[in-house]
Design a protein around this nucleic acid. Structure first.
Lengths: 338, 338
DNA sequence: CTGAAAGCGCTAACAG
DNA sequence: CTGTTAGCGCTTTCAG
């Protein structure tokens, strides 16, 4: 009880947490002394008795991706606003590492966990988390393609299908007919996007079947052969799994003297910050990334508070039209060169 | 002692930590039972007695910046490799929020803290961290410009000066003479880079004084007037505070019909992933970002292990020459059009 | 309104 | 090799 102000530890504890039942004068004194001594309460000790750590775990697949950075930002912001600290782990797109990270989390007993773009099956994850509520953001286990297997509670995702509908419509309006999809890593988003495009295409007419290029080696760069193939085939428009892939391709196509958008239109996904400064500026589907993160934390917080996990939600995305799908040589449509 | 294998808690504790002094058979039994029961030790309880949380705090200025993402990656990787969990906080480039984040950290008693690009004065920070060792990565308090005030221990930074020397030399070799610097947010890196360029320029001849444009509104985007000014002045080459700024400028200069590199050369700083896929691909100074993060964690870890903080270090950077400083119209130099 | 005491889950010291 | 005991720093009854 070196906590010096000639009062008991109990009183100190109460005073520092502004409990009403403590005399204003003693409270003042306690606070003063605490500050003078530089006293900082120990959360670990507290957590032991209140059975809550004021901590949220966040598992991300790759800190390097700017879109993940935005999600982290939103998550951290919401957590911090409610006095929660976030524990971060990087799974490096590797299920084994994700598992290990969850195990480390488990020892620290976070009050909630969110998995971003995880490849792990959701039910397994929930079991591993034992007691902590879990929220999944853009779950990427392949079985989740088409959203069909997303749990009814505790899942948040951007509406890929809606996004792709908008993309296909936009391209059709621009006169593009022979569309191609450049596949990503074969995860849920990738499959969902591909299928959404194909389906949207079927509803349009005249329609040509979707050509699919891919698949991207896991987290690796495309090798040049893909660009070469595309340069030869010359579809009208390329819809890429994400912005990063789109930029890689545009860059490589430059090497084949294929110009965007003059020779071929390109669409990305995510709307990373560079999309609007690139040359050409990239048409893409904007995910509400920060919001995704914020909502994840918020969902966890209400699960903690109320004891029940809120229902899953799907956040709308937005098509952002920029230069990469607007052929300057053709007013109102690619084919209208007459 | 519901920890069920008819042994005492002490034995369980020892068995689970592979202490030698425990019988192999009982250890096996304990492990089996533990797994069957899904028992996971509580780190908070442990930390209370061993006075160590197995946790490292990381404060970053902005999770959105890809370069910070890489540093986070390195840091997390090194920490995880040593069974440490990282607590992440985002300061949003705001000293007040950084302070609050440090206070939150303090309650969780991380075994070490690193501050990335923080604007806080180092000594103040060390005081706030009380007991935890602190490592600064690329400290950005303006007084740190020119590295002069970096503490002798516990600081890591990329060698901005060396980088700018290389940039100036490269530009001179390419025939560029009228150089300009586009300033950043007025932090230590910004001032250091600006001064390094000016100084390097003085050693070259024939030299013209460095023109400085700026200053970037804190964390905001450049407004168009800057690009207009540059378009009018037409320096030979633009050295930008960082890649992001460089891309913004290139984009805006496009609006003024100023082409890079034909009309003006542009250099960035950081070598974000996008730099090598942009059009034009950007000449820039590559920071060893992942390594910076790894070293920060490593430094913390040895400080924890040995009880003394290692000496400060400066990591070399590397000039990466790409299209944005190579004028295709002029072999070997901008002015050699004869 | 305040203090004394018990106990959160674990480890360390000390016996056996 | 294993059990008993005390105690890490806090919160929470329960008495005063």
């Amino acid at each position: 009880m070196a906590r010096g102000a000639r009062v008991s530890v109990a009183t100190v504890s109460r005073a520092l947490r502004d409990q009403p039942q403590v005399n204003e004068r003693t409270r003042k004194r306690v606070v003063t002394v605490a500050r003078r001594l530089g006293y900082v309460p120990n959360r670990a000790a507290r957590s032991l008795v209140v059975r809550a750590t004021q901590t949220l775990g966040l598992l991300i697949p790759d800190a390097t991706d700017p879109i993940h950075g935005e999600i982290v930002t939103g998550f951290e912001q919401e957590a911090a606003a409610h006095e929660y600290t976030v524990m971060l782990a990087d799974g490096f797109d590797d299920p084994a590492r994700e598992r290990r990270a969850l195990e480390m989390f488990a020892m620290h007993r976070p009050d909630g966990i969110t998995l971003l773009g995880s490849m792990l099956p959701q039910r397994v994850t929930r079991l591993m988390a034992r007691t902590s509520p879990v929220v999944f953001v853009n779950g990427e286990h392949p079985h989740l393609a088409g959203y069909r297997a997303d749990l009814t509670h505790g899942c948040i995702r951007a509406d890929d299908i809606q996004g792709m509908d908008a993309v296909v419509r936009h391209l059709f309006d621009g006169g593009y007919r022979r569309l191609a999809y450049v596949a990503g890593p074969g995860n849920a988003s990738d499959l969902t996007r591909r299928d959404a495009i194909a389906r949207a295409l079927e509803t349009m007419s005249p329609s040509e079947p979707l050509r699919v290029y891919g698949a991207l080696p896991r987290n690796g760069d495309t090798n040049g052969t893909l660009a070469a193939e595309i340069a030869k085939d010359r579809p009208d428009a390329l819809i890429c799994y994400d912005d990063k892939l789109a930029f890689q391709l545009i860059d490589q196509l430059r090497g084949h003297a294929v110009r965007v958008p003059r020779d071929i239109a390109v669409v990305g996904f995510d709307d990373i910050p560079f999309a609007r400064m690139a040359n050409p500026r990239l048409t893409t589907v904007a995910q509400p990334a920060v919001e995704l993160g914020r909502r994840a934390a918020a969902m966890l917080l209400t699960a903690i508070r109320t004891g029940t996990m809120p229902r899953s939600i799907r956040l709308p995305v937005q098509l952002v039209v920029r230069e990469s799908t607007i052929n300057p040589a053709a007013q109102g449509g690619r084919r209208s060169r007459t």
